[in-house]
Design a protein around this nucleic acid. Structure first.
Lengths: 340, 340
DNA sequence: TTGTACGCGTTATCAT
DNA sequence: ATGATAACGCGTACAA
């Protein structure tokens, strides 16, 4: 209601609007006498002046907003990334606008358009993509339109959209994991591979298989079960695997939450995780570090992934899309004890 | 760069700016002939027109933004709330601006001011407060200034700031938990009480003690240990408790992540959780539902808390601050098996 | 139903 | 160093 404007401050201080503006934003060349400056600041304080960011955005032609689009902010994978993004954004003096899409590409597109309307400086997009090229094309188009308007974009995951991307070493990490498990004495492998079209899941599976191949081991097709990329998917997949009576000594779940579901399924089936059957995941979700047995996984520095993506969008635009790899490292824990 | 404005669209469609505006925003009384309307929409599509949200905000005098302030978005407690807020916001056609403060009140205040600058419609603030009245007063002042500007505020936690609040039944839930544990046969209680000034921790402790009193049981002071409101705090507190050689059969940690730390400490000390010593938490963090043994806790419907808070801010402003209780319910699990 | 013109709160250009 | 004043992109009385 008592929306006090810069004009009010100027009048109160007995100076012109221009001077008030200069005194307050204190931009580069603040050509304003200290005396007046004080008067203005005092007036502003007295009137409880709060600059209107929207008006500033209009006048300056640029906002102070960065958009973050994730599949599900309640998922620890994404919330860790979000923590990195908010930290980097604050560092840069930006506010982050959060969109949680519930895995719906339509909403991703809608949010991109909204962020474009807000004239957000940049958009960070996280979350595994699928191989649905119809959807991908529309996403590409939305991003292209946004970028045409001067916005920067950074993706997190795999380099799919010809924009700056923070690439998570899914294949390499999974390959390393395969090697480590083989080194620990495991020989009969199975995998909870996630949904068919899921690219992250696919990369991890491919990497795991490649890693096994390095050691003359292999993953027979009947030991690969597909299910949702979620805790319940992991549970269901593991249940099926156990029910099939497959002779397996370790199972790789393509992410930690699926591994958690798998552990639960094993327990429910009376199979001891660790001694009875090994289970490994991917991501190293912090909240899950105290599971029993502790979960073997591949650590992805999610927080840094978030900050890296944010910084990418803030850097000088490059001609070529930048690809920034972040290393993933194997963490062997009790869910895959050495097999003698 | 090729920032196409409404004027461009109007010109392209051969109509006035006003008509273009009416045709596109399609507000209540859209007094525009279908024919022209089509022309405008076609022109907008052809030119890839994207309305400038900032300009709209200025002209309309209100934004489409709601702010969310949390302590740490990576914490599952807050990310669950955030999920509720984003969902409710999308429902209402609003974008949420996220601030993760790292538990720093100074940054909370700073963010409130930024959100005020953005002219955000509302602010949802989550996160336990302390009894530091100096800080609380400054927070109160910042919120008052924001509200004076016409913004709505909803807090999540305890009714501390004379604003609409979604109150989590900390005391009642803890009391119920105490009763349930007593009913399960536990008699020698201990508690990891969190930091001294932490109001949420205090409420839960008070409730727990009250619940015990109902059953003629009690919590002796030497069985109350104070430590950080975190996983590591729980670990450390439990370690101290065990080291002290206290004769205890169940320990109540004032939140789930502390309980997780406590479980880890018990294991490291060779004490079996469940059969050896009972452990209970508070919150029922979803990601933690697959712990072994499964954790007895008090469920707080965090997602609904988030949506409820959001809806409170969007409702017609009331004269009195609204207080909305959300029920918390005891969930007995394997970490506190019946004691015979 | 449509168009004209003003206002929203700032920044920035250009004189002074 | 300071002050008018023109943008910025849009919504909306008011007039036609």
């Amino acid at each position: 209601m008592p929306s006090v404007t810069l004009s009010d401050v100027a009048r109160e201080a007995g100076v012109s609007l221009a001077t008030a503006s200069r005194a307050i934003n204190g931009s580069a060349n603040r050509t304003v006498r200290p005396e007046l400056r004080e008067r203005v600041l005092a007036a502003a304080a007295a009137l409880h002046y709060s600059p209107d960011a929207n008006a500033q955005a209009m006048a300056r032609g640029r906002t102070t907003t960065i958009g973050l689009i994730v599949h599900d902010i309640a998922d620890p994978y994404f919330s860790s990334i979000a923590a990195g993004v908010t930290a980097a954004a604050e560092q840069a003096g930006l506010m982050v606008t959060l969109a949680s899409t519930g895995h719906d590409p339509e909403r991703e597109i809608a949010f991109i358009e909204v962020l474009q309307s807000q004239r957000a400086r940049a958009i960070v997009m996280a979350g595994g993509r699928t191989d649905d090229e119809a959807v991908n094309d529309r996403l590409r188009a939305a991003l292209a339109a946004y970028r045409a308007g001067g916005g920067a974009v950074a993706m997190i995951g795999q380099p799919l959209f010809d924009v700056d991307t923070v690439v998570i070493e899914n294949a390499a990490g999974a390959a390393d994991l395969a090697g480590a498990l083989h080194g620990a004495g495991y020989r009969r492998f199975a995998a909870l591979a996630g949904p068919a079209g899921h690219l992250t899941a696919r990369d991890r599976m491919d990497g795991f298989a490649a890693g096994l191949a390095t050691h003359d081991a292999a993953l027979s097709p009947e030991h690969i079960v597909r299910s949702a990329f979620t805790r319940d998917g992991g549970y269901e997949g593991m249940r099926q695997l156990l029910e099939s009576g497959a002779a397996v000594d370790v199972v790789f779940a393509v992410n930690d939450v699926m591994a958690v579901g798998a552990m639960a399924a094993a327990r429910d089936a009376g199979v001891a995780v660790g001694t009875g059957i090994g289970i490994a995941g991917f991501d190293d979700i912090v909240t899950l570090r105290d599971l029993t047995p502790s979960l073997t996984t591949v650590r992805v520095p999610l927080l840094e992934v978030g900050t890296a993506a944010t910084e990418l969008t803030l850097a000088e635009p490059a001609l070529e899309p930048r690809i920034q790899q972040v290393a993933s490292t194997v963490v062997l824990r009790d869910s895959t004890p050495p097999r003698t």
